[in-house]
Design a protein around this nucleic acid. Structure first.
Lengths: 331, 331
DNA sequence: ACGTTTTACTAAAACGTTTTCGTTAATGGC
DNA sequence: GCCATTAACGAAAACGTTTTAGTAAAACGT
């Protein structure tokens, strides 16, 4: 490993001078700087992050919480897009991204301190868990995704408007009676339900909405609920699923019963994963801009880290309707 | 931040003693150890990773190269499963996972040194790139996934056997004439082609195989190739696609032309993503055990890190046929 | 020519650990 | 009761960097 000391020895100056020269402190002669920079490059010098962060109390390291083992969050396209964009944006600004977990016997906050994370993005965890709240209550810069804490910056997908838009679109296609299968009761779910209810009221279809609780990314469960619905004999015009994957579970059941989609029954998903436009029929769904979520999270975090900004900012990322073939204009 | 010094002051001992007590050095009295451990817990002490690694020259940090921007590797299920399993296995053993990129103006090796990674998993990059080779040629413990360098440990999916098995299965279903669309010419692709050829020869269908080069995860391109094939008028019994996503691109074209799958033409994918068994018809595909790939990579890496093991180990992870509905027994 | 400012550089402390080599006191063997 | 061993602890150096507070010499203003 090349150190400042070696460079100093070669250039016949002190370690201080080398450090300053490489960091552009400004009070080193141009000739000296040039000489130092040149030999540093020749030797392939790069500062030791540990030593540097020990004294600066900065690590240029951003922690990210992605801890949903149950559903292995990382492997769902929505979250992997968030992570990918987040990583890209962080790296572009010179920050590394490290996963923060509780698997090593530390709580989240302890883990963050141990690694000295300059900031943390909380992306896919149980937001009500005490260990998460402990981290949020700390002095470490934090941005949450798809959840908002009092006084903490967050970036959330516009679930309320997304849900409302989706229902409005489906009504505009002539659907009147709905079965709405939603995910477990998280903030995201509550917002969507609110959106659905608001639109339903506005459009006068409130009485025609039946509600079912399922889970996100659980095609089996939503398939089962769909089956129950089929067997009840009282079919709606349109079924809304918590996400595109869940939709597929339901779609299987509908097709198995001989129903034609979208003629006999319309269905819609949520997320707008890449697959949505690859499948036939294309999925009618609400696309969430997951890349923006990841990118914006970093953009909110950086000023907190670098300028000690303490203001609580909220970014709401709009989604967009994807007009697919699982729901069409009814006469 | 709680430091050894503070604990030492409270307990009325030296920093050395505290350090030893907490690390179980063994030459500290049990009563003292107890006292120190207790106050350390009370204060919520956790060692500062930077300070520790500065002297131990260990960071308990594993770097991972996942740099395929073009196709944004992270967002493909195959790779996100690898990453998820890798992260889990590393964390279980007390290691953190940090992304290593070139976006911050350092080459991979420089970045690894800068962060002081104890080891690196190279997972989804251009393996021929000079900066990757430079890292591989360094003294840092390295394990590659789906590629093997001379003298370096690796874990690879058994593409050769997987391809052979798949073709054999398809032949056993009564298919005789094949169009084989493969990905860009990487090691993975070469192995699969070898596997296909070996099986084709063994089963006597060599003359009936036509080959097409496409790209991984590019449903548009494989759709186009499928269309060309349709327009040529000379259809095979079965089309093999480079992966499940590409299959979907092709399937769309086939269905659009009125062909029934699998009666008129059989198709098969590769990867066995979760969706494969959610879709109707289910995808006939070869499932790659991506979780094992990630997990085994860490298992190869740890002995290199902790026991200076230098032996070059190779793990070959078998896949398995997923019997779907896009290829059935022909009479 | 004299005091003042500026320029170019450095010594030393600090960051929080681990580790090496002591030192002292207690214990054990005989 | 003496020597040898062991148990329990500590001082200080080291890791590679940044930062503070300087110093000496050169340049400047008048």
């Amino acid at each position: 490993m090349v150190t400042l000391k070696q460079i100093a020895a070669i250039c016949g100056v002190s370690v201080t001078t080398v450090s300053k020269a490489l960091n552009g402190a400004g009070d080193i002669g141009t000739a000296t700087v040039e000489r130092i920079v040149k030999t540093a490059e020749e030797l392939g010098y790069h500062p030791n992050a540990a030593a540097r962060s020990l004294v600066t109390r900065r690590t240029r390291n951003i922690g990210v919480l992605f801890e949903d083992d149950m559903n292995s969050g990382l492997t769902h396209e929505y979250f992997s897009f968030i992570l990918n964009a987040l990583k890209d944006e962080a790296e572009t600004h010179g920050y590394d991204v490290t996963f923060i977990s509780e698997k090593m016997g530390m709580r989240f906050l302890e883990h963050c301190r141990y690694r000295g994370c300059d900031g943390v993005v909380i992306a896919n965890v149980d937001f009500e868990a005490p260990s998460v709240k402990e981290l949020v209550a700390s002095e470490i810069p934090v941005v949450t995704i798809d959840y908002s804490y009092e006084g903490r910056s967050s970036v959330v997908s516009d679930n309320r408007k997304g849900a409302a838009d989706l229902l409005e679109y489906l009504v505009s296609l002539g659907n009147k009676r709905f079965a709405i299968i939603h995910g477990e009761k998280t903030l995201v779910t509550r917002n969507r339900i609110e959106g659905f209810k608001e639109a339903a009221e506005r459009l006068g279809v409130t009485g025609e909405c039946r509600w079912f609780e399922a889970r996100y990314h659980d095609p089996k469960l939503s398939g089962q609920i769909t089956k129950d619905l089929l067997e009840s004999g009282d079919l709606p015009d349109c079924i809304l699923y918590p996400d595109d994957i869940s939709l597929l579970g339901g779609m299987t059941m509908l097709e198995r019963s001989g129903l034609r989609i979208p003629q006999d029954i319309a269905i819609a998903g949520y997320d707008g994963i890449r697959l949505a436009e690859l499948l036939r029929p294309r999925l009618t769904t609400l696309h969430q801009d997951s890349e923006s979520l990841g990118r914006e999270a970093i953009r909110l975090l950086l000023p907190q880290i670098e300028k000690n900004e303490t203001e609580c900012r909220r970014v709401i990322v709009p989604g967009s309707i994807m007009e697919g073939g699982t729901a069409i204009q009814r006469q």
